[in-house]
Every structure is written in C-alpha cells, then in structure tokens.
Simulated assay, not measured.
Amino acid sequence: MASGNFAFNNPAFQEQRPGLTPPSAQQQAGTQTQYAAATQQATDAAVSAQLEGAFAAPTAGAHQTGRMTVEDTVAKTVGLFAILLVTAVVGWLWTLGGNLGLTGDANQQITVVPWIVGLVGGFVLAMVISFTSRKKVRPALIFAYAAFEGLFVGSISAFFEVLWPGIVMQATLATLAVVGVTLALFASGKVRASARATKIFMIAMVGYLVFALLNVVLMMFGAAGEGGAFGLYSNVKVAGIPLGLIIGVLVVIMAAYSLVLDFDMIQQGVRNGAAREYGWLGGFGIMVTVVWLYVEILRIIAIARSN
C-alpha cells in the first residue's frame, strides 16, 4: 500500500527482506502491550517532573500571570505616592515663592495658585478616572492625578505651616498612625467591610458633603460669622467644643472605614483574578482616601490650636 508521505513510498519500506518472517499475532500483541506500558511510564515520569519543577519554581508574579497581585498593587501605590511627594515639594515652594517658609512668619507672602490648580485638576481627573475605569484603566490619568494632588497637598501644607508652625509634621504622623492601625486591623481580620456599615458610611458621606458645601457658600457670602478661619467648623460650638473638632473626629473614622473599603476592593480583585492594570485603580483609591484623611487631620489640628 502506498504511503501518504512520499518518503515512505520507497520500496525499501514495503518489501520484505529475505530471511525475515512476519511476527505472529501473539508476538504483535506482546509488543503492543510492552509499548503501551513503556509509553505510560514515560508519561507519568514527565508529569512528575513537570509538577516538581512547578513547585520548585518561584511563585508567578503579576508580570507572568498578567493578573492583579497584592505585591504589585503595593508597588504601584508606592510609585503614585512618590509622584505626589515630588509635586508636593513643587507646590510648597511655589506657594512660598521659592522659600521653605519654616519660620512661622504669618506675614510671609504666599500664593494660593498651586492650591487651586491642584484642587481643580485633581477633582476633574478623579471624576474622569472614576467614570472611565469601568471600561478601561488608564494609568497615565492616574499619574496625572497624583501630580495634581501633590500640588494641592504641598500648597495647603505650606499655607498651614506658616500659620501654625509644626502642624504639617503633626498631621503627617497622625495620618500615618491612622493608616497603619487600619491596615493592621484589616490584615488581622478584626475589621472587615460589611453591607450595613457601608450603607451607614454612604449616608454619612452625603451628609458631610452637604454640610461642607453649605459652609463654603456661607463663608463666600460672609454669613458664617466672624472670628474663625473655617466658618461653621470653628464658629459653632457644642458644649464649648468647636463643631469642627466633633465633625473632624467623625470624618477621620469615615476615612478609616474608606481605607477598609479600599483594602477590601484590592483583596477581592486579587481573589477574582482581575487584570494587572487594576492595581493602578487600587493605588488610586488608597491615594484619594489618604489625602482626604491628611487634609481633615490638618484642619482638626488647626482648629484645636486656634482655640
């Protein structure tokens, strides 16, 4: 019979050589059995070697799997905060006209331009990132957000430092403490996000935003009263305690729970095998919350020192 492969159509493969007799059926069966056994052994050995190699090899990371991991998300978050710190220095120097401004001179010439640029730019980018990330995560927008947030944080920090020397270090240490404690409690499993707590958090957020907006409007029209730099936050008192301190403590608790939601989102993304680029979104969420927490603590300390 002719072979489909022309190389095997050579008569040498088809003609029986003299002195050779075809094997019997029993011999053929024995040969096939031996071949099958040898093939099975070889397959088992190959599978065992492959499994041993897989266990011995390093754990596949985000680069190899293309999936979101905690380690990769942490690295991305650190990178975003590095951008923020660099532009925060720019915002600080820009606000104080190139001076460090650590003398506590309240009459020092300052500008709020970087404050406004950072605030508006960061807000716009945060909205764009939030609404477009459902379809595609764009790291470039998140980098830009970190840069604008840095301008805002640096500028507002310089402004507060001139009025209340030492306040930036106090707020920074307090922020790190809150973030560290929240992370430790979440990692230990003692604090977890729940549907009920999240619902209360959302209601409180809406109430806080409405109050903050009302306070800004009253300050713009001079209806918040005199004698306080924070409007209703410092002018209104409850049992002799400035309302800003009471609200500030509640907002810090809200920000801490927001961090829990951020950590939970990252954990779910890793568990569900989300694409690696979603690590940038996790870093973005943490940055938004930490900046909010820092600014609120900055204001709490300023109100306390003003009274």
Rank of each mutant, 00 (worst) to 15 (best):
V236R: 07
A212M: 14
I200C: 05
W292Q: 12
V260Q: 06
V47H: 05
L218H: 04
A275S: 12
Q28C: 05
G122F: 06
N5D: 15
G166I: 09
L185I: 09
G97W: 02
I167Q: 00
S306T: 13
L93G: 00
Q41R: 15
K237R: 15
V270E: 10
I286W: 07
D262T: 14
V238P: 04
G282L: 08
M220D: 12
I241Q: 00
T43F: 15
A239Y: 09
L84P: 02
E277H: 12
A229D: 11
T65K: 06
T87L: 10
E52N: 14
N215G: 08
P22K: 14
Y294C: 04
T198Q: 07
V249D: 03
M1G: 12
L102E: 00
S133H: 11
V179C: 09
G240T: 03
I129K: 07
E149Q: 15
E15W: 02
Q14F: 10
Y145N: 12
I286L: 13
R67N: 10
T33L: 15
A146Y: 05
Q34V: 13
A171G: 03
P23H: 08
E52C: 00
V249Y: 08
T39K: 15
G104H: 00
L243D: 00
F8H: 03
Q64S: 11
E277D: 15
L281R: 10
G248A: 04
T198H: 04
L209F: 14
G231P: 07
M127P: 01
M127Y: 13
G61P: 10
V238Y: 01
R276N: 04
K76Y: 02
V47D: 07
F159L: 13
V251R: 08
G269F: 09
T132I: 11
A204I: 11
A223I: 04
F211K: 08
L259Y: 08
A60D: 08
G150M: 03
A174R: 05
A2V: 12
L80N: 05
T69C: 08
N10R: 10
G273M: 09
G285N: 09
Q170W: 11
A57E: 07
L245K: 01
S130P: 05
N235C: 01
F131H: 11
D264M: 06
S194I: 03
L209C: 10
V74W: 12
G279A: 06
I129W: 05
V191R: 02
T73G: 08
L51F: 12
A106E: 07
G154A: 01
A304N: 09
V181Y: 06
